[in-house]
Amino acid sequence: MDGAARDDGAAAAVVARVPGAAALGLLPPPGAAAVPGTLLADPGWTAEVLAVRAVRAGTGDRRVLATVWWYSLSSVLLTPALAGLVTGRPLSGRLDDTAVHLRAGAAPVAATATAGRGDLAGELRGTLAAVVAAVAGAGGVRERPLWAVATDSLANRLLALGRALGDVPTAAALAGPLAAAVGAPLPAPRYEDVAGARFTRRASCCLLYRVPHEALCTSCPRRHPAERRVLLEDTAARLRA
């Protein structure tokens, strides 16, 4: 699984503008394997990845494995293009121009991309459609829930970038117009403000709670709204600390 994207210097220019770029997945860690973005659209390769991840996850439920895989992959995959958008130094959203970097157990930890070509929404539409189809085929899941996961990843990544850059409102304001430009079936991203902090109002469940020894995510839509708000208030307090 070797296939780093061609280095044209564009990614480095974005990394230089984003504090904590490595923690955000914009810099691959040592030892991570580079996977060409085009491979992510291969349902056969994706099925192999799910088999590898099943051992560590402790479940053979392919629907769960596929959804959790897409939840982690989509977050990493979208980050370079969104970082380029936020910093004004466009990076490509095309699979041909992207590499995803995996740690042991097929865990996505970073993505790299070359310079953008001017139509980010169109690039992301093609990328999401191709990878969602592969994940759905490999996992035997419907595509629409995977599109909902993608919109939550888009919203979450823009929030994380906004926090890193110290301007959450500006970064979050990019989510709606970008998703609208990508178009259906990508749902509109939503945010909510709790105790002075902004969070994604999730449209999806990643099914992580179906993995042995895992729990519902803090912002999971399956939680009772009052319980979710209390947990988000605690998270907001930690963000302010």
Rank of each mutant, 00 (worst) to 15 (best):
V55H: 09
A13Y: 12
R6W: 14
A160N: 08
A11Y: 04
V15W: 13
A54Q: 11
A51V: 08
T59K: 10
V182G: 11
A203K: 09
G58M: 06
A113Q: 13
A133H: 03
L120E: 01
V76F: 02
R63I: 04
T98L: 15
G176F: 06
L95A: 10
P177T: 11
E123R: 09
L178K: 11
R240S: 15
P212A: 02
G88V: 07
R62S: 13
A34Y: 00
D234S: 12
L186I: 01
A133V: 01
E227W: 09
L208P: 00
H213K: 10
D8E: 15
A66S: 10
V86Q: 10
P90C: 07
A130V: 06
L159V: 02
V230T: 14
V194C: 11
L85M: 12
R56V: 08
R229L: 11
L95Q: 05
A10N: 15
R89I: 02
T38Y: 00
R103N: 14
L24C: 05
R201M: 08
V52F: 09
A33V: 10
A34M: 06
V52L: 13
E192V: 15
L24N: 08
A134S: 01
A4G: 15
T38K: 02
R198V: 14
L26N: 11
A180I: 08
L65E: 01
V230I: 14
V194G: 12
V135A: 03
A21Y: 10
G25P: 10
E192F: 08
V131K: 00
R56P: 09
A110L: 09
A32M: 01
T114W: 06
T38N: 00
R103V: 10
D61L: 11
A180K: 14
A148L: 05
L78Y: 06
L124F: 05
G84D: 01
R240G: 15
A197W: 14
R223D: 01
D42I: 02
A66G: 03
A203L: 12
L40H: 02
V211F: 12
R240H: 14
A34C: 00
L161T: 01
A172I: 02
L91F: 03
L26G: 10
R53G: 06
